[in-house]
Amino acid sequence: MSDQPLVLDIEDLTIRYGGVISAVDNVNLSIRPGEVMGVIGESGSGKSTLAHSILGLLPKSAHIEAARFRLSGRDVNAMDDSERAALRGPLAAMIFQNPMTAFSPIHRLGQQLSDLLWRDGQMSRAEKRERIITMLRRTGIADPAAKLDAYPFQFSGGMLQRVAISAALLMQPALLIADEPTTALDVTTEAQILHLMRELRDQSGVAILMISHHLGVIAELCDRVAVMYAGQIVEEGPVEAIFAAPAHPYTQALLACEPALIRERQGRLPVIAGEVARPGGPGCRFAPRCSVAEELCRQASPPVRPAAAEGQRYRCVRDLA
C-alpha cells in the first residue's frame, strides 16, 4: 500500500474571498487509499468550502493558494479548468446533502447515469447499461433495470441518495467526497446509507472524505477525523483518539455539547458561549469562546502540536501532551 500515492494530499491551503477573509486557512489534509477521513465543524467553519475546492467547484471569486494540492499524485495546482474537469469522475466524485437537487427533474435516471459515462467512448450502450445496473444493485436498489426509466421524483430521499452514490461511483473514483450526505434523511435511512458507504469502501477500496456536523455520523464511519473551526483545522487524528481524549478545548466543548453523550438529565444543557469570530486578526480564532483562554491566546497564532495518541495533532498555545 505504501507505494501508492496519497489519494488527497493538501499542504498549506488557503482560500480567500474578496482578498481578506480567509474561509479556509492554512489547511493540511491527506487521505490514504481506502481511508475514510471525516471533517467535522459547525456552520461557517469552512468544511464545505474545503470539500468544494478539491473538485474545483468554488466560484470565480474564490482565491485559492496551496503549497501542494495533489489528487492521486497529480498536481492540481498547475492545471487549467479543462484539465481539472477531466479529474472529476476518475479521481474524485462527490455526493451532496440533498439528492433531490442533484439530479435533473426532467430526465430519466437511466439517461442521466449513462451521460456520466460519456468519456468512455468505446463502451457500447448495452455495456453502459450493464455497468449502471450492476452499480445500482450494489447500492441496494431493488429491480435496477426497471428503475432506469423512472424520474427522480418517483424515488424517496433515501433511495435517491443511493442512486447518487451509484452515480458518483460509476466512474470508479479514487476519492468519494460526501458533503453531509445523510443530513436530509430520516435516522433509520441514515443508518442504512452509512452502512452502505462502509460496505462500498470495504469492497472497492474507495477513499471517502466525509463532511458532517454530526458527531455520531463521524464516529460511525470514519477512520480519521479533522475538526475545523473558523476555517482552520484545530485538531486532527484517529477517530478513537479524538472521541476518547480530545486535546483542543473546542473539540472538548463540542463533545460536551452533544446531547447523545450527556448521560444524566441535569438541569441545564451545556453551550459554547459567544459566536464564531470572523476569520482574520491575530491570535487563536477560538479564544473569544474558549473557557481556558489566556492573554497569550489573543496575541499569537497558536502552533500545531502533537498530542498523546499517535497521529493526533492540535492547534493550541498550551502544551497538553
Partner: peptide, 16 residues
C-alpha cells in the same frame, strides 16, 4: 438508528 458519537460502539448492520 441514531449514530452513537462513540467510535467504539459501531453497529455491524443497520437496525431496521
Amino acid at each position: 438508528s441514531e449514530p452513537v458519537p462513540d467510535p467504539m460502539k459501531r453497529r455491524s448492520k443497520p437496525p431496521v
